[in-house]
Each structure stands twice: as structure tokens, then as C-alpha cells.
């Protein structure tokens, strides 16, 4: 037998459970006075470049009931397609845009909502352009490993049709599940954990 590679195993995931808000959005959980604000609550300021949009939606379980105890994080490029990250190698992103948001689903309605901007284009490793998109990560009670997906934009049909990731999806009928639908400045992006319209999740 070959000697084992000198590599550690990633610590296994466990569900975020029903009280994820205590740790990640304590002000939302009415634990006041510990942190000045919940991290990721605000992504933009008055100087942020780009088209202002809202993204909102619900996360549905296998019976079509919205989750009211989930936590959603998003990560996206700025108006020019650059990430506000030390690992961004292509240039300096808009300093007035964090690119990262964290929001709970509403305890009564299950709606999540982000105030952000429409992202620019980010290249695929082979140099082709990806269509504008926002990366999503969803955790909740009953979800054993955080779920990764992406939202693309309904008003970017041409770019979507050439997107390297959307193109490789075998069942093209499912691409629909990744499209946020525009109405005014609001994009609606519902996520279905199961069922006929199950959202595409990614193993990244």
C-alpha cells in the first residue's frame, strides 16, 4: 500500500440548528448590547457604484412550507466584476461595497431580503465570461451541510445563454430554478429544497 498523503480531513459539518441567529445575527435574536450590529446586515452605502436592487424570496421545504428559521449568506462581485477580498487578484474592488450579506428568514413570513447592487461580469478560469450571478449559502435546522447555489438574473438572457456553468447543466429544464425574476428593482429568488422545482445546488 502506498503511504498515506500527509493531509488532514476537513472537520465534518453539523446542522446550524434552530438557534443559529443567536450566534450569527444576535441583534435579530433580541440579544442586544453584545455587538453594535449584526455582521453582513448592510452591504452598500450611499457611495456604492452600480444599479441598486433588492433580492428577496423564501426557502421552501418538501411540503411547500417556507422555512422560518434559516440563515442566508450571499457573496457577489461589485459593479465591475471585482470581489472585495484579499484573494481578489484582478484589481481593486469598490471600497464602498462589501459584496457579502447575511440575513435571516423572517420568523413570521419566511422572507429573506438583501439590499445590494447588480454585480458585473466575472471570468471563468478558462477566460470565458460568466453571466452576472450571486453566490448563495443556506443553513438551517435539518440541513446537515450548508447548501450552495447561485442566483442568475432574468434580464441577462444573452449572458445566461453563454454562461459556462449554466451550459454544463445536463437537465436544462432545471436552469430555471437559478434565475431571479425581475419586477422593478426587486429580484425574486425562491429556493426549493425538494420537489418538482428543486433548486440546483452546487458542490463547489
Amino acid at each position: 500500500m502506498a503511504p498515506p498523503l500527509d493531509q488532514l480531513k476537513e472537520t465534518p459539518s453539523q446542522t446550524a440548528g434552530p438557534y443559529v441567529h443567536i450566534g450569527c445575527t444576535p441583534n435579530f435574536a433580541n440579544i442586544a448590547g453584545v455587538y453594535p450590529a449584526d455582521l453582513g446586515a448592510s452591504m452598500v452605502n450611499e457611495k456604492t457604484l452600480g444599479d441598486r436592487i433588492d433580492i428577496e424570496g423564501k426557502i421552501f421545504d418538501g411540503t411547500g412550507t417556507p422555512l422560518k428559521d434559516a440563515l442566508v449568506e450571499i457573496w457577489q462581485a461589485d459593479n465591475n466584476g471585482l470581489y472585495n477580498s484579499p484573494a481578489e487578484t484582478r484589481g481593486d474592488a469598490d471600497p464602498n461595497f462589501t459584496g457579502w450579506g447575511r440575513q435571516p428568514t423572517d420568523l413570521e413570513t419566511g422572507v429573506y431580503r438583501f439590499k445590494t447592487i447588480k454585480p458585473g461580469f466575472v471570468p471563468f478560469p478558462d477566460g470565458r465570461m460568466q453571466a452576472p450571478h450571486i453566490s448563495f449559502w443556506i443553513v438551517a435546522r435539518g440541513i446537515n451541510l450548508g447548501l450552495n447555489t447561485r442566483m442568475y438574473f432574468s434580464d441577462e438572457e444573452t449572458a445566461n445563454a453563454q454562461d459556462p456553468i449554466l451550459l454544463r447543466i445536463e437537465h436544462q429544464v432545471r436552469v430555471e430554478t437559478l434565475i431571479g425574476r425581475r419586477k422593478g428593482d426587486i429580484f425574486t429568488f425562491d429556493i426549493h429544497l425538494q420537489g418538482e422545482g428543486e433548486t440546483i445546488f452546487f458542490d463547489i
Binding site: 446542522t15 421545504d61 418538501g62 411540503t63 422555512l67 457573496w75 457577489q76 462581485a77 470581489y83 472585495n84 477580498s85 484579499p86 484573494a87 481578489e88 484582478r90 462589501t98 459584496g99 457579502w100 466575472v122 471570468p123 471563468f124 478560469p125 460568466q130 450571478h133 453566490s135 438551517a140 435546522r141 435539518g142 440541513i143 446537515n144 447548501l147 450552495n148 447561485r150 456553468i165 454544463r168 447543466i169 429544497l193 425538494q194 428543486e198 433548486t199 440546483i200 445546488f201 452546487f202 458542490d203 463547489i204
Partner: peptide, 25 residues
């Protein structure tokens, strides 16, 4: 709780792009 909250279809794999490699500081 995992019964109704677990995706039933296989996740789709792709190799990382800048969108996955970067993150906020």
C-alpha cells in the same frame, strides 16, 4: 427534520472560479 429539508437531486460539481475562492475579510 432532515427528511423534508434535504435536496433529493445530486449537487452539480464545477471547479472553483473567483466567486468561490474569494471571500470577505
Amino acid at each position: 427534520t432532515s427528511i423534508l429539508r434535504s435536496p433529493q437531486k445530486a449537487p452539480i460539481s464545477f471547479s472553483n472560479t473567483a466567486s468561490e475562492i474569494t471571500g470577505p475579510a
